[in-house]
């Protein structure tokens, strides 16, 4: 997805994921998932991120909870982006996303729709919202390695 995506399209992508999140659910077999709860003192965001990891691959990824537009949309996009990826690839994507959010150099080729959050730094108070789900998944990945 090119960074030259029009602002109108970017808005549409954010709103689509906010209004109809694809991965917002608590899996019925949630015990099989690695889960992390994240909450923000500043925003309303209070979510769980669920990842099902098998043979080093993220087979399924969901999230659930209360969240603002930015955190809903960014977490939902993240879930779609990491499913089917190895933990290392997922970690690489998360790193690139974080670089983008913090206005550092980043590898655009792996970010797909999540590029729509490229302007988050314009509203610095919302960086936490744009990264809350990503931080959760990053922790899950790190903990997974640790447990191994």
């Amino acid at each position: 997805m090119p960074i030259s995506l029009s602002p109108q399209m970017m808005r549409q992508i954010i709103m689509d994921h906010y209004e109809n999140p694809q991965y917002k659910k608590t899996p019925a077999n949630k015990e099989a998932f690695e889960t992390l709860h994240m909450a923000s003192a500043n925003c309303i965001d209070d979510i769980n991120v669920y990842a099902l990891v098998k043979d080093n691959i993220i087979k399924e990824c969901y999230w659930d909870g209360v969240a603002c537009t930015i955190s809903t949309s960014s977490t939902d996009i993240m879930c779609g982006l990491v499913i089917g990826k190895s933990l290392e690839d997922a970690k690489y994507i998360i790193d690139q996303y974080n670089h983008m959010i913090h206005e550092e150099e980043f590898d655009e080729s792996v970010l797909d729709e999540s590029i729509v959050f490229v302007n988050t730094a314009k509203q610095a108070a919302r960086i936490k919202c744009a990264t809350i789900g990503w931080d959760a998944l990053e922790d899950i990945i790190c903990n997974h390695h640790h447990e191994k």
């Binding site: 500043n42 309303i44 603002c68 930015i70 314009k122 509203q123």
Partner: peptide, 21 residues
Amino acid sequence: VFAQDLGTYLNAKGIAVRTGQ
């Protein structure tokens, strides 16, 4: 419009309010 999104919008227009709980 979610409260915090509105707060960010107001911020973008120079208006400081509190949002959340």
